[in-house]
Simulated scan of single mutants.
Amino acid sequence: MFIQIIAVGKLKEKYWTDGIAEYMKRLGPYAKVTITEVADEKAPDNMSEAEEEQVKNKEGERILAQIKSEAFVFVLAIEGQTWSSEQIAQQIDKLGVDGRSSIAFVIGGSNGVSSAVMKRADQLLSFGRITYPHQLMRVILVEQVYRAYKIIRREKYHK
């Protein structure tokens, strides 16, 4: 299975990159996982709705350019379905059984994702009603993908 995480913005802080590196190392035996960072659009603090839409559209174009045509696309969105770790594992496993070998997870920018990215989504996925910093969301997502493979393989997860 090939899993691509597409995220807006660059991760700079060592504590975030260290956390992601640890889970990426653990994922090595299970799947090929890559993280693709797309540039965030520079924007003023007090944007109008039209300016915010423009920012999302520009970032959305960058995101869509990175998604493989055959990929099953999960877009992380607060209005998405809230699944358990077991449900995420079941979906990843089912995609593999169904012959889908490419999955993309999309983490938008601080303003969310464009309507074009939402339309490309095969599944909207929420990690709850609270908002996480985008950097932390990457760590959480990589950990959940790792956890999914441990569940799929019925292996014990170190706590």
Rank of each mutant, 00 (worst) to 15 (best):
L95T: 11
K14W: 14
Q135E: 12
R129K: 15
V38S: 08
K156L: 12
E53K: 07
Y149T: 04
G109C: 08
I92M: 08
K68I: 04
N111I: 02
A71Y: 03
T34K: 10
I130Y: 07
A116R: 13
G96E: 12
F105R: 05
S85M: 06
K150H: 01
D18H: 13
V38L: 09
K42P: 05
G128P: 02
Y15I: 13
V33T: 11
D93R: 15
R120K: 15
S114T: 02
V106Y: 06
I103L: 13
A121E: 06
I151P: 03
G60L: 07
V117I: 09
S69V: 11
R154L: 06
R147G: 11
E86M: 12
V139L: 14
G99R: 07
P44H: 12
F74L: 09
K94Q: 14
N111S: 12
E61N: 06
E37M: 10
A43P: 00
R62Q: 09
M24W: 02
D45N: 13
M47W: 01
Q90K: 14
A89D: 07
Y146M: 11
G128Q: 08
T34W: 00
Q123R: 14
K56I: 03
Q87I: 09
A71D: 12
G109A: 10
E143L: 04
G28W: 02
T131C: 01
S84I: 11
L11E: 11
A50G: 04
E52A: 14
Y132I: 05
Q144C: 03
A77V: 07
A65S: 11
A148C: 08
A89G: 13
T34E: 09
I103M: 08
N57I: 04
D93H: 15
E13C: 11
I103E: 01
A121M: 06
E70Y: 00
L136H: 10
K94C: 09
Q66V: 03
E79H: 07
K14M: 14
A89H: 06
F105V: 06
L125F: 00
K42A: 10
A31G: 06
R153T: 07
E41P: 03
Q54I: 03
K14T: 15
R120H: 08
E61Y: 03
R153M: 02
I35V: 15
W16A: 10
Q91W: 07
E53F: 00
L64N: 02
Q54Y: 04
S126H: 00
G19D: 01
G96K: 12
A116K: 13
T82Q: 03
G112L: 05
S85T: 13
